[in-house]
Every structure is written in structure tokens, then in C-alpha cells.
Amino acid sequence: MSVAVRVIPCLDVDAGRVVKGVNFADLRDAGDPVEMARIYDAEGADELTFLDVTASSGERATMLDVVRRTAEQVFIPLTVGGGIRSTDDIDTLLRGGADKVSINTAAIARPELLHEASRRFGSQCIVLSVDARTVPADGRPTPSGWEVTTHGGRRGTGIDAVEWAARGQELGVGEILLNSMDADGTRAGFDLAMITAVRRAVDVPVIASGGAGAVEHFTPAVRAGADAVLAATVFHFGHFRISDVKASLRAAEVEVR
């Protein structure tokens, strides 16, 4: 037996409410992230991820309240991402009950943040979130052909995505959340080539994200080197459930919880 591949649902949270909440039969309030977290926990989620998409900084405190209430009721690891700018932001979330934080834009602006954060809080709770896409025809080429983006994939940075993941590991992060912006939203399957390339470049765990559209998509992502698989839409809209993904992985002799 070895460590199980983790299946991680992600919830987009705006000002304390789940974005585009869909009411399942067994759910009282699909807009309540705490309620959704409980449902996912009961379905066998191995971790939970909240992505704070709140635009106004004045409502940031709302996310902290969500984290606190979730940590009171759900006893599996919780990662929070979105809008984290400083080690003080991280401290606040960890004290509130988050187990890990994922950092994206702020690390691109100032990579040392990753080093400072992993030294202060430990590598195990710092996740580098990499939103990567194929460099567009009019963009500056990168060695791997993929570049890091910001603003939900709309803005290219010219930074090589694979090199950036490796740099994150050097700076001390404990995990890479690899989100393929090419695959994101297509529901056509994970970006296997990108997972393979990043897996070769780092030896911290890699969470694959972007493109999940069918239960059959998850096993290839694991075979390509993902230690964990993350999805939002397919779980959120009830296309299939976490237990279905696990059954599919198990049938392919992938170890799951």
C-alpha cells in the first residue's frame, strides 16, 4: 500500500458565497461554502480547496469567517487560495483554520514571498498555483512552450511554466497546483503533456487541474504523474460525484482512500 491519490473538489467563493451554486437534492443551500464542504467531505473528498474570487478587498474578511466555520465542522485538510499577498495574509488564514494556502500572482510579482512563507510556516502549507497555457502565436516563446499567466489565464507573463514550477520548489513550496488554462473549461480531459513535463521537473507533489469532464479523465492524469486531481465544475454541477471518480481510479488499480 502507498499514499492514496487525492481527489480534491474546488469551490469558487465570492464574498462568502459559492459562485453559481447549484442545488443538489441533498443540499439545503448550495451557496453556502460550509454546507458544500460538508457534502464533499461526506462524499469522500480527500481535501478541500476554496478559491477566493472576491474582487473587493473590503470583503476579504468574509473568507476568513468561511474558513473558520468550515474548520469547525470538516476534519479534512483545507487549502485556501486567491488574493494572498503577504505572510501576514497567510498567518491570518492558517490561524483561522486553513491547513495550506495557494499563492499565484503575488509570487510572480515577488518570488521571495514563497521563500519567506515556507520558512515561516513550513513548506507543507505553501502551495504554488501555476496557471499555465501554450504560448500564443504572437507571444514570446518559452523553452517548454508553456507560459505562466495571471488574471485567470487572460494575461501572459512570458515566464516558462515548467521552470517556474521548479523555481517554486527551490524557493521552498511543498506542492504545485498545476492548472492548464488551455484545458480549463473544455471538459475534454487533463493536459497530460503539461503534467508529465512538470512532474519531471519537480519532486514535490503535483495537483493536476483543468479539463476534467468525465470520470475516465482522471486515471490518465495520474498515469502522467499527478499525485492529486482537482476539479470544480464537474462536481459543482453534479455531472458526476467524487465517489464516481474514486471508483474509476480504483478500477484502474490506482490507490484511493
Partner: peptide, 11 residues
């Protein structure tokens, strides 16, 4: 180990 940290659910 090939991948560290050891992160996740194990027996």
C-alpha cells in the same frame, strides 16, 4: 522517496 513531502492519506 521519489515525491516529498509525503502528503496525503496512507495506511
Amino acid at each position: 522517496a521519489d515525491v516529498l513531502p509525503h502528503m496525503g492519506w496512507n495506511t
